[in-house]
Simulated assay, not measured.
Amino acid sequence: MNDHIAPRPPVLSPVRWVARGAVMALALAGAAWVARALWHVRLAAAGMPDAGPLYRDGDRQRLPTPLEDGYHVVSSVGDVATLICALTFLLWLQRLRDNARTLSGRPPRYAGIWVYAGWIIPVANLWIPRGVVADIHHAGAPEARLPRAVNWWWALWLVAMLSGTGLMYADTTDEVIARAYDKVELLLAADAAVIGAAVAAVFVVRALTATQQRYAP
């Protein structure tokens, strides 16, 4: 009998379709934020109505213009697209993390809860999601450098998150409209960061998925 039996390759969960879903969701979210940015430009070009802002001292003082009503629709669609993108991206990330554990044969550096909690816990959300992605990459390609797209994606994500006018702003839609009339440059900079992060994330998804597909049967 032959005592030198080749080790069986690791059995990984399929990632192709969750990766395609993540890419499509990222494209949808990016398109939604492009529409939002264009609406910011339209609001800034139109200028504040002669009747003044929608709200003054907490009280509504006029009816919204058609352009302002349109922005409410664009903003709501963008929020839904962003939620779909987040859920789909997390599904992809969880699938690849499980596969990475199989490939490495040891527990990941971050427990499974951090795949989700790492995005919302203050301070921890500055590095843990990137760390999860880096661990996934190193499990599949331990000798390879981290793809540049990961650093671009994370840098743009932090700008969008910390800008105060991007992903994490606490203003109401009407307050964002007021910002567009007054300081549209800040809104457009945040929009550009979100759109750039979505584009970079597509390359991240493709790169990490390709690494794991090398082990597919």
Rank of each mutant, 00 (worst) to 15 (best):
W114A: 03
W17N: 15
S163A: 05
A117Q: 04
G58E: 15
R56G: 08
T165H: 12
R206Q: 09
D57E: 15
A44G: 03
Y110C: 00
L12G: 05
P217L: 01
P108R: 09
A51T: 15
D171W: 13
I113W: 00
P142K: 04
Q61W: 05
A216C: 05
R109W: 06
A37D: 04
Q94N: 14
V41P: 00
R97F: 01
L83D: 11
V15P: 14
F89M: 05
R8K: 11
L54K: 04
E143D: 12
R97S: 14
W114T: 01
A51W: 13
P108Y: 03
G58I: 00
V73E: 02
L67V: 05
V199W: 14
D171T: 03
N2Q: 10
A31K: 08
R95K: 07
Q61K: 01
A32N: 07
A216T: 12
R206D: 10
V80W: 11
A45C: 06
I84W: 02
A27V: 00
M168R: 10
M48R: 06
M161K: 09
R106S: 14
A198P: 13
W153T: 10
M168K: 09
R101L: 09
A149N: 12
L28G: 15
V184W: 03
A22W: 03
A197T: 04
A216K: 11
S163N: 03
M168N: 12
L54N: 04
A192E: 12
L126N: 05
L208Q: 05
V115N: 12
A44F: 15
I84N: 08
W153A: 00
A81E: 02
Y181E: 10
E143K: 11
L12N: 08
D59P: 10
I177C: 08
G118F: 07
S76Y: 11
P107K: 14
L146K: 01
N99Y: 05
V73H: 04
V23W: 02
L28S: 14
H138T: 14
Q61P: 08
A22C: 05
F203N: 09
L90P: 06
A31T: 11
R16W: 01
A178H: 08
V34H: 14
F203H: 11
A37V: 11
A192I: 14
R56V: 14
P9F: 03
T82E: 02
P10D: 06
A44Q: 07
R62D: 02
R179L: 13
W114S: 05
V15K: 00
L103F: 01
L54R: 04
V199C: 13
A210S: 15
A45F: 07
